[in-house]
Computed example of a mutant assay.
Amino acid sequence: MTRLSDSLLDHLLLQDVPFGDLTTDSLGIGERPASITYSARNPMMLCGSEEAARMLEMKGALVEHLIPSGRLLAEGEPFLVATGNAEALHAVWKISQTLVEYLSGIATRTRRIVDAAHRIAPETVIACTRKNFPGTKEASTRAVRAGGGMMHRLGLSETILVFPEHRTFIAEPAALWIAALKARAPEKKIVVEVDKLADAEELMSCGIDVIQLEKFSPEDTARAVEIARRHSPMPAVAVAGGVTEDNVGAYVEAGCRLIVTSSPFFGKPCDVKVVLRPRRTEQAET
């Protein structure tokens, strides 16, 4: 996976240390040789370790140990060790720790949904929506991928997804506007979201590529999958709205192999332990 850009990481550092570290400077300890070690307090799917390492390098530190994103860590397992002067390590310490904690939280929740789905059907795809906190798309996308998921759509410019809020403006029959969409964008798949089973049946008969079921029960999802199987080619069936680690299995058992979810974005960060200490002397632990 491609890590976040230097420009974004530099922006994060400037937000946290815009005019130097007043505490470290005032104590006069900035030039002392130091080391920093990051480890998982609890089992977690790691994400953001490369970004933390790069921020350390940008401040002149030397990375001595690094486990890449996408690895499941055991409790207490170190994933990043670096050395440098105290000024550099203190400047990066908290912003990098927080970034890894938030990204690993998203990655861990994504992985749990992936695992729950794959226990039933390994071919199931978990796709996360664009409901990440605004301004964090690059980081959130990286975390979803580290957890084994993919992005449902990255933005409005990327895919054709017709919502009921679009269809309310359309007076002509579905077959006509779907044919018009296919003619205008022949290289794109036509995805339509519905919140009623009757609408799903009608739209699938018009040749759409993907039917997206919004807040359907597992029982209605199974009915929609059965309707889709009557068509050739069979439209893909995606279920969205309210899918979590706890209920994803029921949707997979209903025959759905494309799960659309926002739930990985909402939850607690993981907990990362950081030990920053003078080299070969006493340590300060957070």
Rank of each mutant, 00 (worst) to 15 (best):
V81I: 11
V125T: 11
F79E: 05
I106K: 00
A88V: 09
A82E: 08
Q97F: 01
F79K: 07
L103K: 01
G76A: 12
E101H: 02
V92G: 03
T83D: 04
T83V: 11
A127D: 02
V100D: 02
I106H: 00
A91H: 08
Q97D: 03
L103I: 00
L73G: 03
R71C: 10
R111D: 13
A116W: 01
A116P: 04
D115K: 13
R109K: 13
T83Y: 08
V100I: 11
L89V: 08
R111V: 00
L103W: 01
S104M: 05
I106A: 02
A91R: 09
L99D: 06
S104F: 08
Q97N: 04
I113T: 10
E77F: 08
V92F: 02
H90V: 02
Y102C: 05
H90A: 02
T124C: 13
T108D: 14
A91K: 03
I120P: 11
H90L: 15
T98E: 06
A91I: 01
N85G: 01
G105Y: 03
A107H: 02
R112W: 04
L73S: 05
V125P: 00
K94C: 07
T129N: 07
A107G: 06
A88Q: 03
S96M: 06
C128N: 06
L89R: 00
K94S: 13
I67K: 08
D115T: 12
L99Y: 03
A121I: 09
A82H: 09
G76T: 06
H118S: 13
K94E: 10
A121V: 08
F79G: 03
R71K: 15
T110N: 08
A107I: 11
P68M: 10
A74S: 13
T124V: 15
I113Q: 09
R119G: 06
A82T: 07
N85W: 01
